[in-house]
Design a protein around this nucleic acid. Sequence first.
DNA 1: TCCGTTTATTGAATCGATTCAACATGTGAA
DNA 2: TTCACATGTTGAATCGATTCAATAAACGGA
Lengths: 353, 353
Amino acid sequence: MAKGHVRLADVARAAGVSQGTASNVFSRPDVVREEVRERVLNVARELGYRGPDIKGRLLRAGRVNAIGVAAVEPLTYFFDDPWARSLMTAIGEVCDASGTGIAVVSAMNEERLAWNINSALVDGFILLCVEGGERLVELTRQRQLPFIALALGIEDATIPAIGIDNVSGAAAAARHLLELGHRNIAILSIGDVDGLVGPIAPERVDPEMEATPRDRMHGYWQALAEYGISREAVPIQGTLHDRPSTLTAMAALFSSDTPPTAILAMSDKVALYAIQWLAERGLKVPEDVSIVGFDGVPEAATSLPRLTTVAQPFAEIARRSVTAILENALPKDHEALDLELVVRDSTAPPRSR
Amino acid sequence: MAKGHVRLADVARAAGVSQGTASNVFSRPDVVREEVRERVLNVARELGYRGPDIKGRLLRAGRVNAIGVAAVEPLTYFFDDPWARSLMTAIGEVCDASGTGIAVVSAMNEERLAWNINSALVDGFILLCVEGGERLVELTRQRQLPFIALALGIEDATIPAIGIDNVSGAAAAARHLLELGHRNIAILSIGDVDGLVGPIAPERVDPEMEATPRDRMHGYWQALAEYGISREAVPIQGTLHDRPSTLTAMAALFSSDTPPTAILAMSDKVALYAIQWLAERGLKVPEDVSIVGFDGVPEAATSLPRLTTVAQPFAEIARRSVTAILENALPKDHEALDLELVVRDSTAPPRSR
DNA sequence: TCCGTTTATTGAATCGATTCAACATGTGAA
DNA sequence: TTCACATGTTGAATCGATTCAATAAACGGA
């Protein structure tokens, strides 16, 4: 009492019970006799005691009841980027159900990454590995907390990870356009590699591209091959997954003599930018140009027109990740979940039919 | 060593130094002699010691380096709702600059709210008080950590809060439409009160409406009065700030004999839904109907057409909130920041001119 | 050589709770 | 009356670090 803060020990002494009993009054009220409990609670109130301090509890119990979500991106990424947000929303839903909190941890530079990962007060991590995944995993491993990697481009089977079947998903998207009758199709790729903007030759895909866009590319090619269309016949424009580079890419695609009648975009974000570009030039979707996105972010369902896309099972990914961490039951293998083609209003048969 | 976990004391013993010195090696390396430091670090490496455990450090040092953002909403709200996201993005930016982490804490039901607020490991709270603000503030107060309330509808000057000048902001929006020549204007209000959906009579505004929409309403009325338009002449439709109720409200507004030529929407979210409704009916914005939103969320800048709106100074709000908490320098008074009318493409003179 | 400084290290106290073996007490059955 | 058992309570150990007063060692100046 004298020292500013009232602690459990003070309450215990003032109420004439042991510290153990006082602790029980707050943490396991059912084991202490009602009469004693009331007395302790009254004393606590008089003294202005606010209940057990979490820091002490934490030290002893070791559980925080929160999971950390980390990415090699600024904090704004979690609230900005459609893919990240879709995931966060799904994770939020699962955490809400179990009363778990979420801490977002970011790290742009190496130094801070290490610090942030090490000092986040969480019971485990979900790693968003779109970029810099390798380093992120390594760092998190050192923390010796359960973690699970999402969107990991690394093969290493010792890393618990949940992935998606990008190849079949992409193939489904391409097949959809082909079935509608499109034969003049272009691809809008995504990535963080500066060298991969503008036109990309097929032979550069395997050596230079990151895992996710590479897999999607192969999925596209696979379906195109089924219809006898060779890789070389399909123009690829690389974007940095942002607005400016997408607009540039679109301009390049449509400056051709035979502009595409359909576009395969490797993300909904890019697809949506592409639609904006088309709208500004008076080209109608899907009448003039069809477009298929990727990811299945919520914006795709409310855009104008509503976007046909390949949806990730965000809810399932979130459910598995969170329970894996909370129950410390990490998957042994990499799991790859299926994607689902969601046909909406941005695709139609080509006009020239 | 024997007990699974290696702790600082083990390292100290193995290296033949005191625990104090071992601690310094990690936390204040500059004060220990290089030779000793190296020795300790080597031993630590051999033993597999990962550096100081944050839980112990926390207990002693008491600082977490993270701020909590709380709302009486599900966790998904933080990643879903445009207003919340704008704020979170701005907060993220400030936190990034100072290396601070963010924990989001939610609470739908009373019981869990208390628990979540009490067990969040943070140095302070930013409270999103759009709904249930009063209770949220009360609970947080008990935690005895610095906190600051945003979008608070309560007058109580003892609560540190940052607000915005809703009245002048709304007035500016209305004035903009009036200056363009609109005289037949309708209002789309927002709120969480079930009774306030559908047509709302002006006399119900003061007694029944929450603070934010009420203030905005008065701002609208103020500007309308300047042009000699009485409150009674302006139809108000209440929405629950979601899609279905907005569509219903729009339908009601346009079933009138004299449908409005312009709409004042109390949020960008609602404004965007309204535009969708109009688009589906073939009504063009701004040619057929002008619309002004409120808040200045990023979607408003990229929608089709780009939305004219009254922008909140999110960056400034975030900057002030975060620094107030980090430096424990809470504002004495309620601060009210100015809003800015951002004219874009969703407003034009009425057609019939 | 002696003394005053500076620098590095030690050891013990501390942060604030939880946990658990041991002990009291009360109850019912044999 | 005695024993077994359930129920409450106690006291001390523990979690894993940081901090600080006290001490030791090294150094420089007179």
